[in-house]
């Protein structure tokens, strides 16, 4: 009847016992690993709890409303902030978070001078990992990061404020909001002012050297090229802040279909009419084949030698006052020196 018949009891028992033993052994290893992981990444799993118990005594709370309409009661002067993937703003405001964003293959490299001693936390913010850092304020970038009841879980750990996609896609708004939350509104306003001034000066310099010229920012990763959107990340800096002209291909993509970085084929790139190309190269050694291809070399800017290579940990993929300021430095370095 059944294809799999009942077997002799002996071997079954043995198998079950084996399985059970295996599980016990594996779990035991897991405990050790967990211990090591916590020690190496957090390094201070016990320390925060002590501080955390001290923190609330410091003070008053204020109630704010976040992007999802939550009424959040946050400390007036938060000491242990967790704002994953919003670290640019924290660095701008001179705040050290309790943990910084990371993925299995890296962190936001350009912030590493400021965040050197800050332990990492996985980008998906596992509940237990968040708890282990004992934050007193959690700022989440996007609504989608706290969907399906996750918000309530985070909110049990510490007051959780959702910045929201609408605010987050404009770094000035994000910085201002975070400044307000952390009681650093003045610093935020000053940072924006400083940035705007720096951008204005850079724009002036560029106007004399490369007035009316166009530039494209390309990202090469896993043998695919991506073209930056003209309003986001380094695209915003190039076109909006510094007034360089955007090349034909950027504007060809329908506005409602644009991501920050848009895939573009090498064939299509051969039609690129840009005076300068900034190339963020995440492929390094693997890229020689593609960068030596006839198609690539036929692009006018490449022929003219106007390709400037940037490493994958440069700021061009990010946005924020800190990132964009460094992006301006890169642009000036390549275009003004000539």
């Amino acid at each position: 009847m059944f294809a799999l018949k009942r077997n002799k009891s002996g071997s079954t028992k043995l198998a079950m016992a084996g399985l059970a033993a295996l599980m016990v052994i594996l779990s035991a290893c897991g405990d050790n690993n967990a211990g090591n992981a916590a020690n190496s990444t957090a390094g201070s799993t016990t320390a925060p709890s002590a501080e955390a118990t001290a923190a609330p005594s410091q003070g008053e709370a204020k109630t704010v409303t976040d992007a999802m309409g939550h009424q959040v009661s946050i400390p007036v002067n938060p000491q242990r902030v967790l704002a994953s993937y919003l670290e640019d703003h924290l660095v701008t405001l001179g705040v050290k978070p309790v943990a910084q964003w990371s993925v299995p293959n890296g962190i936001q490299e350009y912030l590493s001078p400021e965040l050197k001693e800050v332990p990492t936390i996985s980008y998906d913010l596992p509940l237990e990992a968040v708890t282990s850092f004992a934050p007193d304020l959690i700022i989440v970038d996007s609504e989608s990061a706290v969907q399906n009841g996750l918000y309530d879980q985070y909110n049990k750990i510490a007051p959780t404020y959702v910045l929201g996609d609408a605010v987050n896609k404009d770094w000035r708004k994000a910085l201002t909001t975070i400044g307000d939350l952390l009681g650093k509104s003045a610093e935020a306003a000053q940072a924006i002012k400083d940035y705007d001034q720096k951008a204005a000066e850079a724009k002036e310099k560029l106007a004399s050297v490369a007035g009316g010229q166009s530039a494209a920012a390309l990202w090469l990763v896993q043998k695919n090229f991506y073209l930056v959107d003209e309003t986001r990340a380094s695209g915003e800096v190039l076109y909006k802040d510094l007034g360089l002209a955007s090349p034909n291909l950027v504007t060809e993509i329908p506005a409602d279909q644009r991501a920050t970085w848009n895939p573009i084929s090498l064939e299509k790139l051969s039609e690129l009419k840009a005076d300068h190309i900034f190339l963020v190269n995440s492929d390094k050694s693997d890229s020689s084949e593609i960068l030596n291809s006839a198609t690539w070399k036929s692009i006018p800017a490449v022929k003219a030698g106007h390709v400037y290579e940037l490493s994958s940990n440069s700021t061009w993929l990010y946005s924020g006052a800190t990132a964009d300021s460094k992006t301006i430095d890169d642009i000036l370095k390549f275009l003004v020196k000539q």
């Binding site: 599980m23 779990s27 405990d31």
Partner: peptide
């Protein structure tokens, strides 16, 4: 009862397993 015992065992292990030690 053996199955019940195993569940209890794994339950205890599971309570001890996670990011926080």
């Amino acid at each position: 009862s053996l199955l019940g015992f195993l569940i209890a065992t794994v339950f205890v292990i599971s309570m001890n397993t996670g990011f926080m030690r």
